[in-house]
Design a protein around this nucleic acid. Structure first.
Length: 308
RNA sequence: CGCGGGGUAGAGCAGUUGGUAGCUCGUCGGGCUCAUAACCCGGAGGUCGGGGGUUCAAGUCCCUCCCCCGCAA
């Protein structure tokens, strides 16, 4: 099938790879190269790199809905359009180009977690199950009819990053099934129940500030959900310390919220929360690399210090 | 050349006004103990990121290169 693939980050990679392996006639539309890293090096999005590896034509528009974007899309004349974490809003004009419409791969069980950061929010809110949904894109934000979906459990200590990788692969599978069903003529559409819909906000850095008055599980979920980006943090002696990994614990100890009540290179680092203790397993001080808390404690006594 | 922090024993850190490198953990050996990741005693292990310079003398000052990290994008 002649397919226009619109996607940008790593999440879209397995899906594009699947389309390539399935022998479809592809063109890739992705975001422009962006400055990245410490020196602002202009870096192509992952999807572009993969596309170029296979000699697939790549188009990059600041706004696909603008005139030149629509024109390029029309010229390619796709039968089907597929989006996966593209990062741009499609206009009605865009959507009317492909004869079979536009399929979006979304990393949540719609209608839950519509919007930009569904994976992180599923973890932050402590969800036990999430998944991937394919839907028929319409002009709303992830509001189109549901085609297929697949569930997966979220591990108790799973990070958003790890879940991200799994859902990217799962997404490719669901997409494959969806296209297969489309070609077989067995695809069914199920409208979303808007009364059950939730929309997730974009992740901002300030969201990562840990409030140790919160219960341990809330903190733990925040830490997992913001790993590997932007990473939860707390301040100690005026410095922002990144908290990479935490563990729940049954240990009890008195102290003020945020206080390092146990800080021993052998036992580990345990901080008082709103309802008990939480173990900080991995952290990162300014200028330093991330490291196990037990290692950090060897050269940096933290007993009695307080995070705020 | 966007701003800043840092590269010192296997790991994490300290090293004051320049004068033969210390701490905690680990590691090796010995001891105590019913026993131990606990405790005691002892040992090994570092050309202080690379190169150049100043000096009687540099981890410590100057120049330069490499690498790591944070912020900002």
């Amino acid at each position: 099938m002649r397919i226009a693939f619109l996607g940008t980050p790593d999440f879209a990679i397995p899906s594009l790879q699947m389309l390539v392996d399935s022998g479809h006639d592809l063109a890739v539309f992705t975001q422009p190269d962006r400055p990245k890293g410490r020196h602002g090096t202009l870096t192509p999005p992952p999807v572009k790199e993969l596309a170029q590896k296979y000699g697939i034509e790549v188009f990059q528009f600041e706004k696909i809905s603008a005139l030149d974007g629509v024109q390029a899309l029309r010229n390619f004349a796709p039968e089907l359009m597929v989006t996966a974490a593209f990062g741009q809003i499609l206009s009605r004009e865009n959507l009317e180009i492909p004869t079979h419409g536009c399929i979006n791969v979304h990393a949540s069980l719609l209608p839950k977690y519509r919007g930009a950061a569904p994976i992180q929010w599923a973890v932050i809110e402590g969800g036990k199950v999430t998944g991937v949904t394919t839907m028929l894109t319409d002009v709303g934000l992830d509001t189109g009819d549901i085609l297929l979906f697949q569930e997966t459990e979220i591990g108790e200590n799973e990070t958003a990053g790890a879940l991200f990788d799994r859902l990217a692969i799962l997404g490719a599978q669901v997409l494959k099934d969806t296209i297969f069903a489309l070609q077989a003529g067995t695809l069914t559409r199920t409208p979303q129940d808007n009364t059950l819909a939730t929309k997730c906000r974009m992740i901002k850095k300030e969201l990562g500030k840990i409030d140790f008055n919160q219960p341990s599980c809330v903190i733990h979920n925040l830490v997992r959900g913001l790993n590997p980006w932007p990473v939860a943090y707390a301040k100690m002696d005026g410095e922002a310390v990144k908290i990479w990994e935490t563990r729940k614990t049954e240990r009890r100890e008195e102290g003020q919220s945020g206080a390092c009540v146990i800080a021993d290179p052998k036992e580990g680092l345990f901080v008082k929360t709103g309802d008990g203790l939480i173990e900080i397993a991995e952290l990162q001080f300014p200028g330093a690399k991330r490291m196990p808390a037990k290692a950090a404690l060897l050269g940096r006594p933290m007993q009695g210090k307080v995070f705020d």
